[in-house]
Design a protein around this nucleic acid. Sequence first.
DNA 1: TTACCGGGGTGTATAGCCAG
DNA 2: CTGGCTATACACCCCGGTAA
Length: 488
Amino acid sequence: QKMKAIKRVAPEAKPSTSKRVRLQANADVNDMVTSALNDSAVDVYIKNKNSIKSPIEYLDDITDKIMSHLKKYLNLWGNIKANYVFECTYYKLNSSLETEKLNGNFKTTAESLTAESDLEDHLSVSSTKMIDEMCEFEKKGSGWALLHIDGMLFRVSRHKPLKGKQFIPLPKSIALTRSVVNVQNDDDLCFKYAILSSLLDSETNHRHLPSTYKNLTHPFDFSTVQFPTDIRDIKKFERANACNCNVYGLDDKNNVYPLKVSDFKYDKHIDLLYLSNEETSHYCLISNLSRLVKRQISKHKTKHIICRRCFKTFKTDYNYMGKSGLKTGDDLMREHEMFCGLREPSRCEFPEKMTVEFDKYQYATKVPVVVYCDFETLSTPVTQTIQEHKTYSVGLRTCSSIPGFKDETFIYTGADTMEKFNEYLIDLCRKVEDIYARNVPMHPLTEEEERRYKNATVCEVCNGAFTENNIKVYDDLTGRFIIIIISG
DNA sequence: TTACCGGGGTGTATAGCCAG
DNA sequence: CTGGCTATACACCCCGGTAA
């Protein structure tokens, strides 16, 4: 059978434009460096100048070089993100003995690094990831063999992690919604103030002044977060305090969008607003998400319940009379959260037929002749990744319920195993063909069989009720009565 | 630290419009 | 007549400023 055609690089195809440019760069010059985005991102291409053949050896060879680049950009930018693309070319011979080529690119996802990061560990993990990816490709890639290693594309970009620090006034339109508590701190503790302000109700005077929180006793454990607080640390805070903590941001039109949304794991819930400007950034408490978000999603003046994950809204006074009875907005939101909060986005589709049942009744009766085979092979390597399996032995067992058919075991070992196996099988087929050619008329039913036939109320195969067409089935090789079934 | 209040939004009650 | 929607009026909420 022909395999489904797979789109491949034609024999004469060249690598993609960007890769070609990289490869044509002067080999004697140092690594090729291109920068983009106002010098906040840099591509470094380290060509395989010495034509090293082994991937592990090559990655080892360039470690020092990458390390020096990493250090350079860490010094320059403080925080960076780095990822790698390991570029190789693969080849294989097609049926007309032409060489086909394929670009193999093995990438890592961008990892953020700081001055404190263990760079050696980062590099060794990244190398392992790429080698793993490569092995995975070679395992699946049916016949592609590594032709050469082209080089390593190494991407560094400046990374400014989101950290909340000092007071920023709310934009006017947001302040007017009276839905955000914005503590006017002059230290780095805004995350702490924002969380603490959730303990105080609107009756409390001056929720916006840090002094209010000076002697406040509270149940929160802040040991897991640092100040200023990185948005990624909030997960740790959630775990330590059994409390969901969502963070929302503002876009340039002061519309609210989710920055970090948790999965509603805990009963307690705190929503924070993250503000930022050129100098600093700041967390505030959202005291009323509905007030804050409503204006951007509906002009309707009634109170809304808003899904914290996707901003889907339901009117509080909504009364929907469905088949299962009256549903309010609260009911609809609870139903919505079951799908939105606990699962990845998904859509449920039910089959038209709501039951699953066995309907291949033709497979429910015994097959007259069965052959079981087992081969033993020797594998000889063709390339590093491809082996040829040469059959040297076969074991074969025939089983049959036909009277007079002798069950056999056939074992053969030798270089011509496949030929012998084929001869045996063809011979067996002829024998079976002769048997199948028989057509023995049905024997008269025995007394017991007659009773069974008359008393039958359901099909003996599918348990279905009989129509007018219930029929007796008999084995035409022996003439024996087997079973009563519904016709068709 | 406490008390008070301005201001401008949200939320609610009610009435009216309109299509089916 | 009903349900869905809008308009209007007004009560209420609550941040944030001021002042004692």
